[in-house]
Each structure stands twice: as C-alpha cells, then as structure tokens.
C-alpha cells in the first residue's frame, strides 16, 4: 500500500511541475503578446500574434484541472471546514468521510460526462490555431480521474497513519 502511495506521490510531483510549466507557458504567451504590441511595433517590426491569447487560455484550462487534481492530494480544495473541525471526532470524522465519498462520486460523474464532451470537441476547431477542441476538453476527464485518484490516496494515507482526516489540509496557508 505504501509503495502505491509513493507511486501516486511521484506522479503528483511530476504533475506539479507540469502544472507550473503550464502557468509558465500562459505567462510566456501573454508576455509575447505585450512584447509584440509595444516593443516590436515600436521597432517597426510588423508581426501579428493572434495565437497568443488562444494558447494562453487553453494551457490555463489544463492548469486548472490538473492543478485542482493535484490539490486534492492534500485536501487543498477550499471548503468551509470550521464546523466539522469543531465537532467531536465520532461525528465529525464520519461526516468528513461522507463528503469525500460524495466528492468522489461527483468526480466520477464529471469523468463520465467529460467523455461525450470530448467527443463533441472532435467536431470543433479553435478559431485561430485551428486546433481540435477535444485537445482542450480532455482536461476534464483527465482532471476528474486525477481527483478521484488523489482523494483515494488521501483516505488511504490517513487510514494507514491513523490520522484524523479532518485536519489533513493543515499546512501552509493558501492565498
């Protein structure tokens, strides 16, 4: 079990880098747009980069779904937890497991409706880059899969470590 968990975390470590790289691509594309508009034009160089915005938007969509997927590993998804945290463990802990089960079921639904959406995307192309939109739409089922995997990993870890799952999110504060 521990080795499986370690494998999942290796995957998450790689995905975290991917997610950071996606943000870097987004930033790079927008920066290029600014440079084209202000620097190159001022220098009299005539280029047009209509693809920057589209590329930035699509990489960002992937960043959101993969990033949220990675976030599930440490229960980083923002929630109103103060009530559950203040309850006695014998009530609060089952509620927490119940919400995780519900979340996993919802991720399953997202995966399941994500597939026909990808199918729809096969007959759509992006206006500028002429990209098949399914390339973007895959972010949903892939992200949903990752969220399921990481939610299970969190439960398994808390069970193995005999930790109170309600406090699994405690770590550095998010901004």
């Amino acid at each position: 079990m521990r080795t499986v968990l370690a494998g999942v975390d290796k995957l998450n470590a790689v995905l975290a880098l991917v997610v950071g790289a996606l943000l870097a691509v987004t930033a790079g594309a927008v920066l290029y747009q600014v440079i084209v508009r202000f620097v190159l034009t001022a220098a009299g160089i005539n280029v047009s980069a209509p693809w920057t915005e589209e590329l930035a938007r699509y990489t960002l969509i992937w960043m959101v779904f993969l990033g949220a997927g990675v976030g599930c590993r440490r229960a980083q998804m923002i929630a109103l937890e103060f009530l559950v945290r203040r309850m006695p463990a014998r009530i609060g802990v089952p509620i927490r497991y119940g919400t995780i089960a519900l979340s996993i079921a919802f991720f399953g639904l997202l995966f399941w409706i994500g597939l026909p959406f990808v199918e729809l995307g096969r007959t759509e192309t992006s206006p500028v880059m002429n990209l098949e939109k399914s390339v973007v739409y895959w972010a949903l089922p892939v992200g949903a899969m990752l969220m399921i995997l990481n939610s299970i990993a969190l439960v398994v870890e808390c069970t193995l470590d005999k930790r109170d799952i309600r406090f699994a999110a405690d770590g550095p504060a998010a901004d």
Partner: peptide, 10 residues
C-alpha cells in the same frame, strides 16, 4: 487584413 498590409492586433 494581413494580406491588405495591416497589422492585425489581437
């Protein structure tokens, strides 16, 4: 608009 010599700006 490129062909007409302009610089289309997104």
């Amino acid at each position: 608009y490129k062909a007409m010599g302009t610089q289309p700006t997104p």
